[in-house]
């Protein structure tokens, strides 16, 4: 498979020449060979973990993914943000705009994560300033074209499912949808408003999914950038499969070369706390936004 063609949405005039759609819009995704999509990989926040990113892409293709979509947040936390951007460009993977990409592209003051805790803000600032300083002008320009949504259809005929991919939620790219704070009726209303059968997002960094009414689903792809605060070193991506007209979301653990990434982070002067997280599988920063249940499952 050689990259996913980018088909501009109707609200993207002038974007029909293979260029990325204008910012803030919605893009469409289809398979390379015109076959209906039945197996799609979704990559959550990458946070500059270029090593896990490459392993995940290779793994998804080995598993027969017809298309791969990135749900945004290319930078943060890890080393050398241009490396992840280069991989996504080389592989031709379409990207939904995450809050980090939005901030980096526009040169905003912060990552729009909304922390108020002084400690969380301290580390968020280090991470953001490092990423902003180390993202090339070319990549920032590229990010400014990321759409807010990517829409695609899985399957054909009456069994087809409309999937809406976004970063945080359909309405806000920095909205946290945690498993223990997001009611089913709320997701159903959101899916209804979005005209989608499957809502596909990330932003929280912990993967989860829930079947809604009928054949509808919410899927949070988790993150490739750091472990899921579960004491394991693996990171995760989501593989959406259509089986007999029903969505089957699978979460795939990704093992990558943690120690080499840790060395790179050390070389780049990134905080020991970040390195501890990828080595232990426990979050050490950005803890304020975790709901009580998710926080209690972690160590810190």
């Amino acid at each position: 498979m050689s990259g996913i063609p980018f088909v501009p949405g109707e609200d993207e005039p002038g974007a029909g020449n293979g260029t990325a759609p204008r910012s803030g819009g919605e893009a469409l995704l289809s398979s390379n060979d015109g076959e209906p999509l039945t197996r799609v990989a979704a990559l959550g926040g990458i946070y500059s973990n270029h090593r896990a990113l490459q392993v995940a892409i290779d793994d998804a293709r080995a598993r027969g993914a017809q298309a791969i979509v990135s749900l945004g947040d290319l930078g943060a936390f890890g080393p050398s943000p241009d490396k992840s951007a280069a991989i996504l460009k080389k592989e031709g993977i379409p990207v939904v705009r995450g809050n980090y990409d939005d901030s980096i592209a526009r040169g905003l003051e912060d990552c729009q994560c909304g922390y108020t805790d002084p400690r969380d803000n301290h580390y968020a600032r280090i991470s953001y300033e490092y990423t902003l300083a180390n993202t090339s002008r070319e990549h920032r320009q590229w990010m400014s074209g990321f759409p807010r949504h990517i829409r695609f259809r899985m399957g054909t005929g009456p069994d087809a499912l409309e999937v809406l991919a976004f970063h945080g939620s359909p309405r806000r790219m920095n909205e946290f949808l945690w498993e223990t704070t997001t009611p089913t009726h709320f997701l159903q209303a959101m899916a209804h408003d979005a005209g989608a059968d499957v809502l596909l997002g990330t932003h929280t960094g912990i993967h989860w999914s829930r079947r809604l009414d009928g054949k509808r689903w919410y899927v949070n792809a988790g993150a490739l950038g750091r472990p899921a605060n579960d004491g394991r070193r693996e990171v995760w991506y989501a593989l959406l499969e259509l089986e007999q007209g029903e969505l089957q979301p699978h979460f795939v653990p990704v093992s990558y070369d943690v120690e080499t990434l840790a060395d790179e982070m050390l070389d780049e002067g990134l905080p020991d706390e970040f390195i501890e997280t990828i080595r232990t599988g426990w979050w050490t920063t950005c803890l304020e936004v975790l709901p009580g249940k998710e926080r209690a499952r972690g160590r810190w």
Binding site: D102, G114, R172, N174, F176
Partner: peptide
């Protein structure tokens, strides 16, 4: 709100 991100929009 419990956290600032319970509400608030991106910019």
């Amino acid at each position: 709100s419990n956290t600032p991100s319970s509400a608030g929009a991106d910019r």
